[in-house]
């Protein structure tokens, strides 16, 4: 189609942004966290990232080959899925488990439901939960500087003191991409400046979670505890990069805020009342399942339409 002369009826799309460009921006914004992860955990982290991306792209290519579908690996969404999944894995994970995670993310969560745009939950998070349930041992053993240690969140859960400065910088144990809050925030700013995401989902998510921690955390107004909860685990990674996934988050402005609030409450419940120290990934995939319902009740009223009285007329 010619970009110059294109006669169609309105509405007209004037933007030249397409899926590939959006995905490329997401990849660029994830680079700070990835580079810090590689610096932090060494070359094993780099290998794991490459293996996971390779597994995701290869799964998409092979699946589309087998079922004779149009090849879509050029839209880069499989690369984003692979990168996000890798950032959610501990760097000590055996490579074949990462490959299995990539295959699960692309084939089971995405392609079987119809490919990009049809998946009902975030593929990277679906795969993370699959791996977490299947290989609990290797998914929850974190080493840092050669010693096996607990993540800051686990320490916090056990009632110990954590260094929030280290958590901001990211020099702690954890998954490859979640440790450095600063690196993640740089990426988030890139996404917001380029208009890829808006602040509704991450803002309402993080705010709700903070209020929840203040109310139910059992530590009162302890700033150190609050900051540690906000910077610990996958909250920042999840709030800015995974809860905002276009396919699996509501499209209505009001729905985005409702979605964020639900995620905040769920994460709070999982982290504070649950057995595990972390709950971001479960909260987000659970929220993903509620998206159709949220969209249904938050459809904005068109300008000029009067709301009908009562609920009798349909």
């Amino acid at each position: 189609m010619s970009d110059l002369l294109n006669v169609t009826s309105s509405p007209h799309v004037r933007d030249k942004v397409d899926t590939q460009k959006v995905m490329a921006l997401v990849i660029i914004s994830l680079l700070p966290a990835s580079i810090f992860g590689i610096y932090n955990f060494g070359v094993k982290a780099l290998v794991l990232i490459l293996v996971t991306i390779g597994s995701c792209v290869a799964s998409e290519w092979i699946y589309e080959r087998i079922v004779h579908k149009k090849n879509t690996i050029n839209d880069l969404s499989a690369v984003v899925t692979g990168l996000l999944l890798a950032l959610n894995l501990p760097h000590t994970l055996p490579w074949w488990q990462a490959v299995l995670g990539g295959v699960f993310a692309i084939i089971v969560v995405k392609m079987l439901f119809g490919g990009l745009g049809q998946n009902f939950m975030n593929p990277a998070l679906g795969a993370r939960c699959f791996l977490l349930i299947s290989f609990t041992g290797s998914m929850t053993s974190f080493t840092y500087d050669g010693t096996t240690g607990a993540t800051p969140l686990a320490l916090l859960k056990a009632g110990e003191h954590v260094d929030t400065m280290k958590m901001l910088l990211g020099t702690t144990a954890g998954t490859i991409g979640e440790t450095s809050v600063i690196a993640l925030l740089i990426g988030a700013i890139i996404l917001i400046l380029f208009g890829v995401i808006d602040l509704r989902i991450p803002g309402s998510y993080i705010l709700t979670f903070a209020v929840f921690v203040l109310l139910f955390g059992g530590h009162g107004f302890d700033m150190n505890y609050l900051v540690a909860q906000l910077c610990g685990g996958g909250l920042m990674l999840g709030a800015f990069f995974m809860a905002t996934d276009y396919v699996t988050s509501p499209i209505t402005p009001m729905g985005k805020i409702v979605f964020g609030i639900i995620l905040g409450i769920l994460t709070g419940i999982f982290r504070i009342f649950g057995a595990s120290a972390e709950g971001v990934s479960y909260a987000i995939i659970f929220g993903n399942l509620l998206v159709p319902l949220i969209e249904r009740v938050t459809i904005p009223r068109a300008f000029g339409i009067v709301k009908e009285k009562g609920g009798e007329k349909q």
Binding site: Q97, S134, F135
Partner: peptide, 15 residues
Amino acid sequence: YTPITIFVLAPGAFF
């Protein structure tokens, strides 16, 4: 062989 535990749990039945 490292067992893929999810297959003896409920989601595995559906898969």
